[in-house]
Computed example of a mutant assay.
Amino acid sequence: MDAAPSALGHPRDIPVRCRWCRADQGTVVLDLGDQPAADHFPPVDDPGPDPVHPLRMWLCGGCGLAQLAEDPTTPEEPRGAEPAAMVAQAKDAVARVLAAGLLPAGGGSITEFGSPHGGSWLDLLGAAGLTEATPGTPADVVVDCFGLMHAADQAAGLAERVEAVAEDGVLLLQFHTLAAIVADGSWNSLRHGHFAYYSVPVLERMLDAVGFEVVHAFLFDLYGGTVLLAARRRGAPGPADPVSVGSMRDREVSAGVTDPAVVGRLEEATRASADALRERLTELRDRGRSVLGYAAASRAVPLLNRAGIGADLLPAVADGSPGKQGRRVPGVGVPIIAVDEVEERHPDEVVLFVTDLLDEVRGRLPGVEAGGGQWVVVDPVVRVVTPLGGSASV
């Protein structure tokens, strides 16, 4: 099904302008064709067809921001279940921010810009003595964890967050860095509703343009590379660690995060996961082996659609979010079931679409391996996880 044309023609025919600097010169570095919206999970009995829309990553030639070239979708975003890995990372992040002296001594106020994916730092920061700011009042600490990327207008989104910071306050921005996305070949991080894909040098320049200076940089293993930047108004007092900022910036610049040729390698990476997964599931079906999926995450949608994997190859995907259960993966029709059904079905293999969930789901579903089944992860190379905890490439 073709993407619906707008009043100005097909979305691909409309000139692209940067969501931050408004430049109109750039490069499409990843084109996944027409895809269903990754936050639209129709009821399982909805026959479709599902609307599809262009899904392309565009790298701005002016500021270097990687972003969606276009997104005519309407966000729905069923609330996801927060992974244990994200909870653990949030605790680690707050502990490191506290140790760095970035939180006000003796309490203070906080405003949080939430993400549709769930999760909050409010309780953790509350335990550190902070209280929620009165709506409309600048806060001593403003936290954005995977939230800013959902702003279609990046200039307006960042301005809103900056305006929420008190004069001597600190802005904490967390994001899945483009450097890790490119290094890992995580092409299916591209999705409708995620308008921007930040790197440290680009986000640092964006903050500089609104009068903020990055004073600390923290790196976490979550999603293969998650960065937390702490920024203050230029000249504001407070602790700083320019070494952490400079080293991370230099490392990402050297990795080529603003080079279209480097970021364009994501196009090649699609074959490492999409084609390999289809081949594996086809082989399992032909051998009469049973298989299920786990995590109806947004990144699973382009993967399954790019690979053309429907319910004939993957009968169902389990997910911990009640809002997704009883629905189906858009475009391919794979039903979404409750987690408890996994062990009841005694699968020979379970394909995990979010690698960070591995320890959590193995602990929750020990019957998979106890019954002779095995876990397969896609990150993006398809790998079989052995019962002893090691892994082997397929």
Rank of each mutant, 00 (worst) to 15 (best):
A3H: 00
A4I: 08
P11A: 06
D13A: 13
P15Y: 00
P15R: 08
R17P: 00
C21W: 10
Q25V: 15
V29N: 08
A38D: 10
H40D: 15
D45H: 15
D46N: 04
P51S: 09
V52P: 01
H53L: 14
M57W: 03
G62T: 07
G64E: 08
L68Q: 02
L68H: 00
P75G: 09
P104L: 08
P104N: 04
G107P: 05
G114T: 13
W121A: 15
D123H: 10
L124S: 04
L125P: 09
A133C: 06
T134Q: 12
T134K: 08
D140Q: 11
F146R: 05
L148A: 04
M149G: 03
H150N: 03
A151Q: 03
L158P: 06
A166S: 15
E167D: 15
G169F: 01
G169A: 13
G169S: 08
T177L: 07
L178A: 08
A179G: 15
A179R: 00
A183D: 07
W187V: 07
W187F: 12
H194F: 03
A196R: 04
A196Q: 03
P201W: 01
P201F: 00
E204G: 02
R205G: 10
D208Y: 00
V210R: 10
G211I: 06
F212L: 15
V214K: 03
V214Y: 05
A217I: 09
G225D: 11
G225R: 00
R233T: 11
R234C: 13
S247T: 02
M248K: 12
D250Q: 11
E252G: 09
E252F: 01
G256F: 00
A261H: 05
A261S: 15
E267H: 14
E268V: 09
A269C: 08
S273D: 15
D275M: 11
T282V: 14
R285I: 00
R287A: 14
G288R: 00
N305V: 12
L313F: 07
L313S: 11
P315M: 03
V317P: 03
D319H: 01
D319N: 09
P322Q: 13
G326I: 02
R328G: 04
V332E: 06
D340L: 05
D340V: 07
E343F: 03
E343S: 15
P347D: 14
V351S: 06
V351I: 14
L352R: 05
R362K: 15
V368D: 13
G373N: 03
W375P: 08
G390H: 13
V394Q: 05
